[in-house]
Computed example of a mutant assay.
Amino acid sequence: MKILILKRDKLGDMLLTTPMFALLRQQFPDARIDVLANTYNAWVIDGNSDVSRVWSYQRVKEGGRIHWRAALLQARQTLALRAEEYDWIIVANGDASHRAIKRAVWLGGRQVVSYVDARNTHRRVTHPLEIPKRIHEARRMANLLTPLGVTLPDTLPPLRFHLPADAQAFATTWLAEQGLAPGGYITLGLGARRAKKQPTTEQILRWTQHFNDAWGLKTVFMWTPGKSDNPMYPGDDETAQPVLDANRPWIVPFRGPLKPALGLIFNGRTSLFPDSGLMHFAAASPGGVLGFFAETDVSPPPDQWGPIGPKADWLEAPKAVSELGDELVLARVEALLQK
């Protein structure tokens, strides 16, 4: 059997699809299980033994520019994929996507599985599925396997992610330079694009002092580089600055790209992150994560996007994380440290 899974989403979304890959491999141990992803998110599944091959492509439009060479390469890739004559093509989107469905149809699989709705569908989708409501995104992905006869277990397989070697090498060098040992610190990040999901400067200063005084753990404080008005990738430089200005000796700042950040997260004792892609990667790390959610009547709720794993926990605030009491937050962090 030959199966192709289309996954065009963000990095955290790709990570949340890895339980789906594991279920497929368990059900069809001899199948060829390929993934079609873009160059932005394909590296997330490097080294994943549940996947036979990753086909990657560059986006044709990035940063407002059209990349004609990428368009040509995608056309050639489409012909190569059609020649594979896949038995199943699965559109691994949590919602119905006309563009993803169209791409799947172009690839000519014998059976095509996708979530659809009134506006996003195609007559050649052989297994159109209704979009499930209020279930976790990882289970929503796994639910796409039901037309293949896969029965979903009560507990999905764990997230699977292999820390890149260069990320580990960076962490080893950087930690030595900062006088930190693996497991000797907590990572706290500002990875959300909405201020209501982020702890305040005062909360960060109080929590990190407790980490240091009560547990002897310093804090690696990280944030998304850049200005908040960046239309492509809003950053948190302005939000992070008051924490830096406080100049606390137990806070070690890190402002850098994603893969080095992952190296630091995976070498820490545990992590705290707002709802974000980094939160999901931290959930897959040895130390786990405490995630923060707020105003979930208008923002994505934790029952769909909460961190998952044996060392994953989350807190939900009515309107903003600033409402969460220190005692509650610190008790949850301590529980993670004891797991």
Results as ranks from 00 to 15, higher is better:
I3S: 02
L6T: 11
D13E: 07
M14K: 09
P19Y: 05
Q26C: 04
Q26E: 15
R32P: 09
R32M: 11
R32K: 10
L36G: 08
N38Y: 10
N41P: 02
I45M: 01
D46K: 07
V51G: 00
V54I: 13
W55N: 03
S56Q: 10
K61S: 08
G63Q: 02
R65Y: 13
R65L: 11
H67K: 14
A71M: 13
R76K: 15
T78A: 09
T78D: 15
A80N: 10
D87K: 07
I89N: 07
N93L: 05
A96V: 02
H98P: 10
L107D: 01
L107A: 05
Y115C: 00
R119N: 15
H122C: 05
H122S: 06
K133G: 10
I135V: 14
E137Y: 05
A138T: 03
R140G: 01
M141L: 12
P147M: 02
L148V: 08
L152R: 04
D154C: 06
T155Y: 04
L156R: 06
P158K: 00
L159V: 02
H162I: 12
A169L: 11
F170A: 01
A171L: 07
T173K: 13
A176R: 12
A176M: 11
Q178H: 09
Q178F: 07
G179M: 09
A181Y: 08
L188W: 01
G189E: 11
K197C: 12
E202R: 14
Q203P: 02
I204C: 00
R206C: 04
T208V: 08
T208L: 04
H210R: 14
N212W: 13
A214G: 01
A214I: 06
K218Q: 12
T219E: 04
F221C: 06
P225Y: 12
D229R: 06
D237M: 12
D237G: 10
A240M: 08
V243S: 03
A246E: 11
R248K: 15
R248A: 15
V252W: 03
P253W: 00
L258V: 10
A261W: 00
G263R: 04
I265V: 15
P274Y: 04
G277K: 03
F281E: 01
A283W: 04
V289A: 06
L290T: 03
G291S: 05
S299I: 06
K311C: 10
W314V: 07
A320L: 05
E323D: 14
V329W: 07
R332A: 03
A335I: 03
L337M: 13
